[in-house]
Computed example of a mutant assay.
Amino acid sequence: MKAIGQRILVPYDGSAISAQAFSLALGLAHPGGALTIVHVDEGEGHDIQRQLEPLAGALRAHAPAGGLRIDAVTARHPNAGEGILAEADRLGADLIVMSTRGRGGLARMAFGSVTDDIVRRGHHPVAVVHADDSDYDSAMGEASRGPYRFRRIILPLDGSETSAAALPVAADLASRESVPVLLVSTVNLVPLTSPGMVQDVGMAASMDQLYDDTREAADGWLADASRTLAAAGVASSTEVMNGSAGPAIAGLARAGDLIIMATHGRTGFDRVLSGSVSDQVIRSGVAPVLIVRSIAERIAPS
C-alpha cells in the first residue's frame, strides 16, 4: 500500500467539535498529498456548505513544506456513514480522520453505527481524536491551529499477524516525522503465588509458568518488531505490562503521542470499535488513535 496520509478525508458536520480533527489530519498528511473536508448532507437543512471553503483556506495556511492540496465538498446522502464511505471510495482516500463527537451522524462517530459502517464495511484506516468539550475553539479557530505534532508513537502488539498490520504504518510515520516508537504488549495474568493469595499449590505453579511463558513470548515478538523498525532506521523501545490492555495502554499515553492499533488481535483488539480496549484508549482523551485494517500490507517507498 502507499504511504498513509497521501489522500485524507475529514468529515465535518458544522460543529467546532468535529473540526478538532483538522489539526490531526494536517499532522498525518503526507507532503505532496491531498486533504478533503467532506460534509455529508443528510437533508437536515443546515447551511454548512458556505463554511467549507473558508475552512479549507485556513488549513492551506498550515500545509506542509512539501505542499498539500486542500479542498472541500458536500455529499448528499441519507446516511452519514454510507455517505462518508462513498466519498472515501470516490476520492481514493487512504485515511479518514475524525472527531469522536459532533452533531447529527458524527455524534456517534467513535463507537456507534457511523464508525461501525466506516471500519467494518470500509477498507480505510481511521484516525480518531477525542474532542474535549471544555477545550475547543470555533471551527475556524480549530482550522487555524496548525498540524498536530506527535513526538512518539505507541504501538500495541499481541504477537498475531493481524496486530502486526500496524507495524509498517508505524514505521512509515515514525520515519517521516523522525519520532521513536514505543512497542507495547500486555499480559492479563496475575502470578497466583503473589503474597496474600490462597490457592492450590499445583495450580499456582502451573499458572505461574503460564505467566512466565506469556511474558517471554511477548518479549520475543516485541524484540522482533524492534529489529524491523531498526532496519527502517526507526528508534524504538519495548515494554511488557501486566493487566488489562485498555487501561494499560491509556496509562502510557502522554500529550504528543499517537497510538496506532490494528482492528483485530488476540487480546481484545478484535473489538476495536465496540469493545473495551479502544473505547478506554480513545476515551482517555490523552492522545489520538489511528486504527488500521487487519490486512497486513507493505508500505511502498514514498
Rank of each mutant, 00 (worst) to 15 (best):
G268N: 04
S206K: 09
L68H: 07
I70L: 05
V10K: 04
V129D: 05
R50I: 12
P180N: 11
R254K: 09
L59F: 01
T193I: 00
L91D: 01
T267K: 14
P191F: 02
P247D: 02
V281R: 06
T162H: 10
D213W: 01
A61V: 04
L229D: 01
R149V: 12
L229R: 02
A174E: 08
M140F: 00
R227M: 08
V179A: 07
S276K: 10
A139R: 02
A143E: 13
S144G: 13
P195R: 09
A225S: 10
A170G: 05
H130D: 12
L155K: 11
D41Y: 11
V286C: 07
A255E: 14
I37L: 14
S194V: 03
E42I: 15
T186Q: 05
A171K: 10
P156C: 12
D270T: 11
Y12G: 00
A262Q: 13
Y211M: 01
V169A: 06
A34F: 04
M140G: 00
V201Y: 00
V234L: 01
L68C: 09
T36K: 13
S276P: 03
A143Q: 12
S194K: 04
D172E: 14
E297C: 10
T228E: 13
D135G: 03
G104Q: 06
L155N: 08
G220H: 09
I153C: 10
D257H: 03
Q199E: 03
